[in-house]
């Protein structure tokens, strides 16, 4: 999937993945895609909830070797 920006939030604990995602998203235009990598297990629920509440679309979530990957399209 083509992401406009990749955010490496690996190793960060709550609330940092969401805080960083918000900061990264602020720099994108509507329709562009942010890819987030995190190792925080809570992010699996946190990022989709945040995306929904903030009007973004969660396009895909994948897990690979303990790393969660999210593709979020800016609303």
């Amino acid at each position: 999937m083509n992401a406009t920006k990749v955010l490496d939030a690996k190793g960060l604990a709550c609330p940092m993945p969401v805080v960083r995602a918000k900061k990264a998203m602020d720099e994108l235009q509507s329709g562009q895609v942010l890819e987030v990598h995190t190792t925080d297990k809570g992010a699996k629920n946190d990022l989709p909830a945040w995306a929904k509440a903030s009007g973004h679309t969660m396009l895909d979530i994948k897990e690979d070797n303990g790393v969660l990957m999210f593709w979020i399209q800016k609303g």
Partner: peptide, 11 residues
């Protein structure tokens, strides 16, 4: 403060 920071990220 964690909730406050989370809420700020929620705009």
């Amino acid at each position: 403060y964690i909730i406050a920071n989370g809420a700020a990220a929620y705009d």
